Simulated assay, not measured.
Amino acid sequence: MKKNIIGLTLILLTTIACNTSKKTQEPADNVVTNFSDKELITKEKWILTELEGQEITGNKDNHIYFTLNANENRIQGFSGCNTFMGEYNLNENNRIRFSKLASTRMVCFDTPVAESEVLKVFELADNYTIKDNLLMLNVGRRSPLAVFKKSTPEVVEKYWKLKSLGGQEVKMSENQEREIYFILESNTNRIKGFAGCNTFNGTYALEEGNRINFSQMAATLKACSNLTINELEFLKVFELANNYTIKGDVLNLNIGRRAPLAVFEAVYFH
């Protein structure tokens, strides 16, 4: 009888231990999810688009914005006239708190919104939500204190027409269907384009300092003759390029600090 009781007790203890193990593992999934959210909020420049329900507009060079430095847990930004900085803490369930911010003391009279109202957002906010490239800073479950959009680098979402390859000007062949071009899609981080005869696509990644890397490049296999450009040489540009420069509507894809591998011009359609 005692043996039966001991055996039953061991079974119960084992069952409890297993259940406890499962329960302690469940929050780990949440941590992964929250870490992913932290990645989203700390890797971007966030531009103010709405404050207390009112749309905010500004010129290209005077956006109100902030960025979060994940390595130092510091925030820095621009409030319309002055720069500001401070510290922040991220916790589970998209909780966020900002320390008292320090700001420069320039006097401006043409700011799109009172700077004190911008800084007050960071004083009050205790959580955030991210949806469709928009970031909302909130207090409790009320309407957002402010809405920010992800900054889009100049290189993406533009139609880049090839102008020169390896220093040589490029002209269309008579039998060429269309001009050689590429587009970087911001939402999918994919590149698509036309190489003179074949279409191509792949993925790209942007990093600080105008660094760019292309991967998983693929092209259709049509055969075309009498082209003024070697498609393989053109596609090799994306294999070699590791940085870019933009001046106005001209884009250079480069490797290191050498002369551009290829030069492109932005084309706008109305």
Rank of each mutant, 00 (worst) to 15 (best):
L137S: 07
D132M: 06
I75N: 15
T42L: 06
M217F: 01
D37C: 00
A259T: 13
F269M: 11
T203I: 11
N62G: 03
N59G: 04
E185K: 15
Y268E: 14
F35G: 06
A205T: 12
V113E: 13
N71F: 13
L13V: 04
G193M: 13
Q168I: 09
N19R: 06
V263D: 03
I255P: 02
N127S: 12
R142K: 15
E117I: 03
N34A: 02
G202F: 00
V267G: 07
A28S: 06
F214P: 02
A125Q: 12
T228Y: 14
E154A: 12
F84V: 00
V263G: 02
P112N: 08
G193K: 09
Q54D: 10
G86H: 08
T20F: 11
L221R: 10
R258Q: 15
N187E: 15
C224Q: 05
A125N: 01
M172D: 09
L51M: 07
F66M: 08
A262V: 02
V155G: 02
I180Q: 03
N201K: 06
A146Q: 08
L251H: 04
I212D: 02
G256N: 02
H270Q: 15
E208A: 12
I229L: 11
G193D: 14
F122R: 01
R142W: 09
Y128G: 05
P260Q: 05
E117W: 09
L221D: 13
K150I: 02
F182G: 01
S164G: 07
R142M: 15
N187H: 07
W46V: 01
N59Q: 09
T57H: 14
N34C: 08
A70F: 14
D29W: 08
